[in-house]
Computed example of a mutant assay.
Amino acid sequence: MFTEARLYSPVTRTGDGDVTVHLSEEHPGVRDPEYRARRNAIAALALEYVPGAALPRIDYTEDEQRVWRTVSVELARKHRRYACTDILDAAARLALPTARIPQLDEVSAALAPLTGFRYVPAAGLVPLREFFGSFAERTFHSTQYIRHHSAPLYTPEPDAVHEIVGHATQLACPRFAAVYETAGAAVARLRTDAALKFLADVFWFSMEFGVVRERGEIRCYGAGLLSSYGEIEEFRGAELRPLDVRAMGTATYDITHYQPVLYCAESVTHLEDVVGEFFATIDDETPARMRARPVSPRPAAAARPRGSA
């Protein structure tokens, strides 16, 4: 099952107010004191944010801007080849800058006339209930840090590239934004951790790693694929299974590897009908009902290490 804490570097704050982002030993920036200080400072701004206040603006360094330029250009090329039409149309309407990292207030301003979503800052991990629940108010919690400049096409954790190139592009599409909002509305009905976890896992295999058939090809729409320089090249080699919310909500998977199994919609309408309807009807008893249904055994697919994201 998906373990949310593994996605982000833990952030702690002392009684004196000092904020520390605890990078793993494998993180490209772990031995760069300047990068670590930047991460701490950016996290501190997010922790100080008060809802309704002006969003914190980050004075990005030239190294950080160079990373954005490199990744933006490369991902735009891959989107033209691999992303579905709804994503390409949304990206054109959103028109993210490629020469510099957009501030969160700029992303919100660009999304407002398209779907009404807005961004707020996050230091790192946001609890599931708060993260998904905010979708009902068309709010998305986003990190603002950027991956280490030594590895511009790799990140071990979600950064501004993932949050903006991946999720904001999705959220610029009214159809995908409506699925987010429906998932958010579901959270208000759910009281049990099991039901919330089931919802999160279905979201993982749809809005994070979703693929769709389009004109005889497999195309991607999931934010995790749209923001991954490496995995967007590899997803067509995954084992494709039909949309099945029972399987998606009960699957065991490893977020540190490319996903070896993906659930493919026959169209965006099919996604809306299956996943959108699931989010619209899930309740606390749904996981037990789903697990009680028989499922055909399938051979396990081999996972490949996540080389870039």
Rank of each mutant, 00 (worst) to 15 (best):
Q103D: 12
L96H: 10
A300K: 13
A292M: 09
E266Q: 14
Y82M: 05
A303N: 06
D86Q: 11
D283M: 04
E285Y: 03
L190G: 09
L45W: 03
L111P: 00
H141W: 12
C264Y: 02
V21M: 07
P28F: 05
M290H: 07
A280K: 04
F198T: 14
H27K: 03
V245G: 00
G307D: 10
R298H: 13
V202I: 12
V187Y: 02
G222K: 05
G216C: 08
R298F: 07
A99H: 13
V161T: 14
F176A: 12
R138P: 02
E277N: 10
V120D: 06
T252G: 09
E208G: 07
E233R: 10
V212G: 07
S134G: 13
H257L: 02
P152Y: 04
P28M: 08
R57C: 09
A109C: 04
R6G: 11
R213K: 13
E4K: 06
H162W: 09
D284W: 05
P28V: 06
T85F: 04
S134N: 10
A37R: 15
Y229S: 12
A200L: 10
A76I: 01
C264N: 00
E48S: 14
R100P: 03
K197M: 10
L262V: 09
A292E: 14
H141N: 13
L7H: 08
H162M: 12
H27P: 06
R236P: 07
P113S: 02
D18E: 15
A110Y: 00
L262E: 04
E266K: 10
P174N: 04
V245L: 00
D193F: 04
A99E: 15
V30Y: 05
R80G: 15
D159C: 06
R6M: 11
D16A: 15
P51M: 10
R38D: 13
H270P: 06
R100S: 12
A90D: 00
I42H: 01
R13L: 05
A223H: 06
S72A: 15
A280G: 00
V179I: 15
I232V: 14
C173P: 01
V295G: 15
S227L: 05
S9Y: 03
Y253Q: 11
V19F: 11
I282H: 00
R236D: 14
V73R: 15
L190R: 05
A194G: 09
L196I: 12
P158D: 07
R80T: 07
L125H: 10
T155I: 08
E234R: 14
